[in-house]
Simulated assay, not measured.
Amino acid sequence: MDRSSNSGIKRVVFVIYPGVTLLDVTGPIQAFSSANNTEAAQRERIYDVVVASPEGGMITTDCMVELGSVSLEQAAEIPIDTLIIAGGDGVFDAVEQDSLVEWIKQRKFDSRRVASTCMGTFLIAAAGLLDGLSATTHWRHVEELQNRFPNIQVKRDPLFIRHGNVWSSAGVTAGIDLALAMIQEDMGHEAAMQVAQTLVVFFKRPGGQSQFSDILTIQAAEAGGLFADLHAWIAGHLQSDLSVTTLAERLAMSPRNFARKYKDSIGVTPAKTVEMMRVNAAKRMLVKSHRSLAEIALNTGFIDEQRLRRAFHRHVGTSPMAYRETFGEALVE
């Protein structure tokens, strides 16, 4: 187990500022704190978490909750193992603070890791830490990040990206995925798994997995609600014939016209939506029942286990049984 400071404790410093997103800070902090209580920690304190801001003191977050902080000067008095720049709408004021940007720039050379959560990527980009590299941020700000820093390859989909000792993560809860990846690197797979189970989050969503869930993608796409009733009907008839012909008949449209309008409106084919909804239903059954994989496949319209496994891997990035094992301790009696 690698420990960078003389005391053997890894100092994780979160940089915040007025308008920082609360969950960008507290989500990863909870992950590191929970790691101290895992069996792998062997009753030793592995992480010491510090919250810092340019001047120190109480900082008001996006939801008006105040967080206490030490100054950047105080934070740097003891070696920093991992520096994490939190995101939030206040980042656009923060990037104009030359002293803050310069302080972050220096940390690349004297910290083992420098990372950003969500919109915090704007700050590490301003510090030049991402020059010539790829990075990610909250999906709403991908284009703005790319426009401000054209020498960075900004990627919309990944949950987090790592280049050497520089990491960036996507929107809000992706910061927890980033923290889990760091915990795994420091303490091993089992420790990270224990933290994920404690927080009741999935371990591990691959860094390259999309920051959107499949169902959220569908819901966000149909702003006009043209296919809302059809989606509700599909969700209640997953065992039925859900071919393009059947779905088109529900809307009194020709199969060709239906398929074209659906793809134009939703962004995916009707068959893709059906598969997404069946996988989503399978996920619920896996964690809320003792049904066998064969039963779940039949009840969600996949017919057989092999088809369910293939679809599950495509959308979730892991096997159905690994997914059940991850959540089973907390949710399956």
Score class of each variant (00 low, 15 high):
Gly68His: 00
Ser69Ile: 06
Ser69Tyr: 03
Val70Ala: 01
Ser71Asn: 03
Leu72Pro: 00
Leu72Val: 02
Glu73Lys: 07
Gln74Phe: 04
Gln74Met: 04
Gln74Tyr: 02
Ala75Pro: 02
Ala75Leu: 04
Ala75His: 00
Ala76Thr: 08
Glu77Gln: 15
Glu77Cys: 05
Glu77Asn: 08
Ile78Glu: 09
Ile78Ala: 10
Ile78Phe: 04
Ile78Lys: 13
Pro79Ser: 03
Ile80Val: 13
Ile80Ser: 01
Ile80Leu: 00
Asp81Cys: 02
Thr82Leu: 07
Thr82Gln: 02
Leu83Phe: 00
Ile85Met: 10
Ala86Pro: 08
Ala86His: 04
Gly87Arg: 10
Gly87Asn: 08
Gly88Cys: 13
Gly90Val: 13
Val91Ile: 15
Phe92Leu: 14
Asp93Trp: 05
Asp93Phe: 08
Asp93Thr: 15
Asp93Asn: 15
Ala94Met: 07
Val95Asn: 04
Glu96Asp: 15
Glu96Phe: 03
Gln97Glu: 10
Leu100Ala: 02
Trp103Ser: 00
Gln106Lys: 13
Arg107Gln: 12
Arg107Ser: 05
Lys108Gln: 07
Lys108Glu: 04
Lys108Val: 06
Lys108Trp: 03
Asp110Leu: 03
Ser111Gly: 05
Ser111Ala: 15
Arg113Asp: 05
Ala115Arg: 06
Ala115Pro: 11
Ala115Leu: 06
Ala115Phe: 08
Ser116Lys: 06
Ser116Arg: 06
Cys118Glu: 00
Met119Ser: 10
Thr121Asp: 00
Thr121Phe: 11
Thr121Val: 14
Phe122Thr: 08
Phe122Val: 09
Phe122Cys: 09
Leu123Arg: 06
Ala127Phe: 01
Leu129Ser: 01
Leu129His: 03
Leu129Lys: 01
Leu130Asn: 01
Asp131Gln: 12
Gly132Asp: 07
Gly132Ile: 11
Leu133Tyr: 10
Ala135Met: 12
Thr136Lys: 13
His138Glu: 08
Trp139Glu: 08
His141Arg: 12
His141Tyr: 15
Glu143Ser: 13
Glu143Pro: 05
Glu144Gly: 10
Glu144Thr: 15
Glu144Phe: 13
Glu144Asn: 13
Leu145Ile: 12
Gln146Ala: 14
Gln146Lys: 14
Gln146Phe: 08
Asn147Leu: 10
Arg148Thr: 06
Arg148Tyr: 07
Arg148Pro: 06
Phe149Ala: 05
Pro150Tyr: 00
Asn151Gln: 10
Ile152Tyr: 01
Ile152Asp: 00
Ile152Ser: 00
Gln153Asp: 07
Lys155Asp: 07
Arg156Ser: 12
Arg156Gly: 05
Asp157Gly: 05
Asp157Ile: 11
Pro158Lys: 14
Pro158Gln: 11
Leu159Ile: 15
Phe160Asn: 11
Phe160Val: 06
Ile161Lys: 11
Ile161Met: 11
Arg162Leu: 07
Arg162Thr: 15
Arg162Gly: 07
His163Asn: 15
His163Lys: 14
Gly164Thr: 10
Gly164Met: 11
Asn165Phe: 03
Asn165Ala: 06
